[in-house]
């Protein structure tokens, strides 16, 4: 019984940590957008807002689902969800290497970034988006 309670407590902490990290990412995205808007860069600002909204949607989905599952007595994570997470993370990492290469290559010619923070912001946002897409894909696929 104690082991079960301790596991439930750990899962609650994990759920809260996910929400806090998501909120921090959203706040950073909002600041990034605000900075872009203040400098008159509408495209950069809108991109930041879109990414922040996507992350917010994902965080709300994870929180609602996790909370409901915990109340119903299901674990927040099990071996399949861990495997999905691992696959999504590794694929997002590999693909984001190409994304970083493309950003690096194009930054000298086609795309003119305001500064290094804008390029980094787009790279990080892209990585988050890639992770989200791979997570959805592997969650539906046979693994």
């Amino acid at each position: 019984m104690n082991k079960k309670n301790s596991k439930k407590g750990k899962e609650k902490i994990r759920l809260i940590a996910i929400v806090i990290i998501s909120l921090l990412v959203i706040a950073t995205g909002a600041l990034f957008s605000l900075k872009s808007f203040m400098k008159g860069e509408i495209a950069g600002g809108v991109t930041g807002i879109i990414i922040a909204i996507l992350i917010l949607g994902f965080a709300i989905f994870v929180f609602i689902r996790g909370n409901r599952d915990m109340k119903e007595g299901y674990p927040l994570r099990d071996e399949r969800s861990k495997r999905v997470m691992e696959k999504a993370t590794s694929m997002a990492f590999y693909v984001s290497l190409y994304l970083l290469l493309v950003i690096g290559f194009l930054s000298d010619s086609i795309i003119k970034f305001r500064d290094i923070s804008q390029a980094t912001g787009i790279a990080v946002g892209g990585m988050a988006l890639l992770f989200l897409l791979f997570w959805i894909y592997y969650n539906k696929k046979e693994i």
């Binding site: 599952d69 119903e72 007595g73 299901y74 674990p75 994570r77 099990d78 071996e79 399949r80 969800s81 046979e142 693994i143």
Partner: peptide, 27 residues
């Protein structure tokens, strides 16, 4: 749901297992 709770996994895992779309661990 009963089976999922009995073995300590999420319900989706049982759904995928039944469809043969998930290779479970030996455990």
């Amino acid at each position: 749901e009963d089976l999922a709770k009995k073995v300590g996994v999420r319900r989706e895992t049982i759904v995928f297992l039944e469809k043969g779309k998930y290779n479970p661990s030996l455990q």
